[in-house]
Design a protein around this nucleic acid. Sequence first.
RNA 1: GCGGGGAUGCCGGAGCGGUCAAACGGGAUGGGCUUAGGACCCAUUGGCUUAGUGCCUACGCAGGUUCAAAUCCUGUUCCCCGCACCA
Length: 1165
Amino acid sequence: MTAEDIDFKAIEKRWREEWQKAGIFKAKVEKGKRKFYCLEMFPYPSGKLHMGHVRNYCLGDCIARYKRMQGFNVLHPMGFDSFGLPAENAAVKQGTSPDKWTEKNVGEMKEHLHALSFSYDWQREISTHNSEYYKWNQLFFLKLFEKGLAYRKEAPVNYCPSCETVLANEQVIDGCCWRCKSEVQEKMLEQWFFKITDYADELLSDIEKLEWPEKVKVMQKNWIGKSEGTEVQFKVENLDIKNSEFIFLHAFQDTSESVFWPWLKKEIEKQGGKVVFAPNLPNPNEPNIEEQAEFVLKKYKFNSKSVIITHSLGGVLAMKLLPKLGTKIKKLIMVAPPLRTEFLDGKKRPAVEKACDWNFDFNRIKEKSESITVIADEKDHIVPVSHPKEIAERLSAEFVLTTGNKSHFNSEEEPHVLNEIVATIPIFTTRIDTLFGVTFVVFAPEHPLVDKWVKGTKYEAPFKKFLQEVKKETRMQRLAAEGEKKGMFIGRHAMNPLTGEEVPVYVGNFVVQDYGAGAVMAVPAHDQRDFEFAREHKLPVKEVVQPFIIKTDGEDAIRENLPFKKRDSVVCVVKHWAEDKYLCLDWKQTFWHGFVIGGVEEGEDPIETGKREITEETGYKNVRFVKKLGPRIHSQFYHVVKKQNRWAQFQGLYFELVDGKQVEISEEEKKIHGVLWLDKSKVEPFLNVDDMRILWRRVFAESAYGGEGILVNSGKFSGMHSKEAREKITQELARKKLGKKSVQYKIRDWLISRQRYWGTPIPIIYCKDCGIIPVPVSELPVKLPASDKVKFGEGNPLSSAKSWVPVVCPKCKKLARRETDTMDTFVDSSWYYLRYCSVQDKMRPFAKEEAEYWMPVNLYIGGVEHAILHLIYARFFTKALADLGYLKFREPFSRLFTQGMVLKDGEIMSKSKGNIVSCDDMLAKYGADTIRLFELSAALPESDLEFREQGINGSYRFLQKLYGLLSADYPKKGNDVVDEYLIAEKEKLISAVSEKIETLRFNIALSQIFTFIEKVGRYKNFASAGTMKEIAHDIALLLAPFTPHLAEEFWNKYGGKGFAALAEWPNAKKLNSGQERALKAMQLVESIERDLDSLLSIVRKKGKVVSGASIYAVPEDHKTLNGFVEIFERHISKVRIFSTQDKKKHDPLNKAEKAVQGKPALYLE
RNA sequence: GCGGGGAUGCCGGAGCGGUCAAACGGGAUGGGCUUAGGACCCAUUGGCUUAGUGCCUACGCAGGUUCAAAUCCUGUUCCCCGCACCA
């Protein structure tokens, strides 16, 4: 039979139909049966199925079929992620509608999926654009909204101008849109968010439980970006305190000694300010505002330095006072000022009413103060927030709404009030141990306070310019890996909370507003970035951590029980007087390779020590000191020569020799070390201790020491190790209410609003009177209007749906409008795996019992490109749904497998590159089994696969060969040894294939099957029909997950019961002794074949013609070899096999003598 | 910079302490079959040596552990991927 005779397509068609008819892939909950949920990421129906998709599904199908044969109750569903932008774009471009376009594509893709006979339960198919699906998106949205997990806020968001919609953080890659690659813009917009940050910690810690590729886990960890540290408060003057005179005006029934006044006075004085006037106003219990104003005017002369701070009714006084002033004052700060007499506690205050006429000349007040700030307490129980708010508006003043320590700011300490004078800025750091090394503070240029600080100062103009530049450059710089560190001083100083030291405040382009608090404390000595900035701006560098190295292994590892001997030492790097060579020492009694080193004597200058040691150890006498090599290094080690534990404090010094003049060195020194001059490039490899390496690097590059170590110059924390110091300093800060432990995350809430049509409408109604009103659950789904009712290409399409947008407010029944944004389509894919569990359920998104049976997904297969996006959203959704009571488990995918890509000419297949190999051509040419075989055998599933048609051809040939082999007729009786041998090899194959499938190394499983089939082909003339039948039977089973149609064909042909697809996966049997013997025997045969070949080629090379061969075997071997003449005659005709004991053998060269057991001798003629 | 993964023949890639000059596939070369091509079959594909089953050199580089290392450990170089002025 020739290859062309095999009609693979007919075979495939037949079995596809049989399976379908029997419905064998339909999944049903069967309690008590082990389940296996096998899932491949569902496709976006972008067009035809290509080889990349196919690979994904082949992998999943192989496992699904394998698990099914192993007796698992397998759920293997498929569906379509059918909402999304391309449909909308295609609709605009091709004049079709998104739904038609989508459904056409879905149809085509399904056709191919069917043709490849993936074992999906098609009853469970879903398409996310179906309102029966997306209504549940809406339900979840409402539930999340109820719980506060969905919220609306105005925020700077990423906007893609080409997709005309906003994007989530996760969808911005290198500053560009993940889909279309155009640069995203930043916009301030009010949008809907899911509060994924609430789950940041759990999302992070649960990663450990997952059987996922390390790579993906790391990516998720990075994305969540947890860092633990300390939030520390720095104070920055909001106004120039030292050049101000503070005036306090107290409230009704108060004095200048009550409430927060004494505390505020103290705080201001701490900052170097002066409270010049804090009168006890006349008649505080029955005040007369006019009288009080006169009183104040008489007692104090206002000037341009005056800063008035008022509390409550004091504010009314100030407003009466100001218009009467002859000069302008610096600032007026009004704390909770009343404007009218309706107080929240319901109490009448007749005295207050009598005292005030509440008529203010707002314009004149405005004129009399440089700036005005009004502070209100959100929880004020006396003055309604509307009063200070109105005052602020009328005065065009800054309005600050906060929460007082006590209502109406009646506490003895009111930090918010102080904050208007001295701002307290929280700064996040992971290295609070370096707090004493802070020499400046850097703010993000976008920081709101910065704007306030520079206003009206000489820094304002240059800052504005700087801000512009930064905004423009940010994106470009990010792309150009190492941006320049730019920044400027803004005329303010910040106070170090522990040392009280004042350090300058800068803005810098490298500080980002949305991480931490938008400000950093800069420690140039211990942070490379700060170091560079400091050098640029000539800022001081203050050393507070010294490296600390402990040797814990090797022969100089510290000895447990010995005390430490502390030594001040110097390490001297010495340069040659003429060449670029450096003086190194090779210690003879130990392995140390290093530089000249020595102990500093009491009272000795380290530089002198260095010079002395250089001369003592090497003889060179004319040395010149050049520079110190950074801070000291602490090193604990065992001094092998001196036999003691050392705690050395090394000062690195750099010298240059003036000339080569030497003095004689002592014999003793010569014994200790050899002196070497090494080329610059040879020094680094020569050194073998860390401290020497650190010093060597410092010769050439100054840099910050970013590691940990021992604190110095840090007050009472000096001498502590970094780790301990972090604890202690944080505690100290907490005690002083100047800091606390803090955890920062990089992950931001998930922005889900999209200004596009083809997605799930957000079920929200905006009512003028009632505000944001959720659509009642009973009204779901909020269906999309038909696509011919909307206009594309002009902003948000849904807002053009004239009959859709207006809606009756569910609460007040007045006319309201619908939300016109749709949801990010990643919402759809965040829970589709749950819908599969009970697709048909009309009442619920999914049936809890079913989900609990099938979930979690046992194996999830897809591309790495979803490592962050889809996979983190789905995890979040699962957790949120669990908290909403829908689920009991909190992780959706136990095991994840990320398959490699299918490449064509080294590139990813894509429409834009025009290199897509669509699967229908391949199907028509080779059929489904061949394609499946190729996709699975060509490479490891996780590595990329280069698509080559020759490769497909190889798979095709294999199937033809296999078919021929298994379809042929075989004799009843064969060679017993071969029969046993083949069966033994088959058993070995079964266990190997099972193991490889379990570990998803399908290509290796297949290569082993190939090898086996090769062997069968080799010995087919010796095999019996029975053996071949057994082989065909098991091969059918082993191949069933890979090439299911052909496998089914063999299974059927050789009398298998039912379907191979449902048959039990074979178990490898242990080999019996006969089979073991057969294996050995065939090894013998094969080794003779090899020998024959090598002899033949040698002899033939010499030009001799070989006409026959004799084989001389010891009697045992002789017995097994008889019967294999035919095999040997494949190599050379006329082969005779003799026993070495056969006296009459033909043996002219006496070769028989060479034969030993297992190695027969050969003779050629 | 931080983190993850690699480096094996002409190529893709197995092997993960001894059975390894290295599975399987592809390519190349030679031979068979053919009018020819394709397809198919056979052989060769690190070097040397040989009427034989032997030797040498090789699993990025340098060391180490071991009776024994492609395989384990240490250092180092290069490549790929992810994250990144992250405080």
